[in-house]
């Protein structure tokens, strides 16, 4: 990838970088502890506090997949 001029075409510049902002969502969700420090609604007997944070593991992973597919398109 060195010096062949194909690296980072201009189209993948500023616009695609905005997609990185999606990655701030998990931080905002986790900082807002008051929104999830509660027992109800529970799911399958598991209090909200536990299943909600567990769910964010998967949401966080999904957001990374989305951003990766968009910003790293065509890269190895």
């Amino acid at each position: 990838m060195q010096g062949d001029g194909s690296r980072r075409p201009q189209s993948r510049g500023a616009a695609s970088r905005l997609w990185y902002l999606l990655l701030l969502i998990p931080y905002a969700a986790m900082f807002w502890v008051a929104s999830y420090n509660r027992a109800e609604p529970s799911w399958a007997g598991i209090p909200f506090f536990y299943w909600y944070q567990l769910l964010w593991i998967w949401i966080g992973s999904a957001l990374i997949v989305i951003v990766h597919l968009i910003v790293n398109r065509g890269r190895t």
């Binding site: 990655l23 986790m30 944070q53």
Partner: peptide, 12 residues
């Protein structure tokens, strides 16, 4: 759990 939620966007 929030620890590991916050680590991977940073790593990425």
């Amino acid at each position: 759990v929030p620890y590991t939620v916050m680590v991977y966007p940073f790593v990425f």
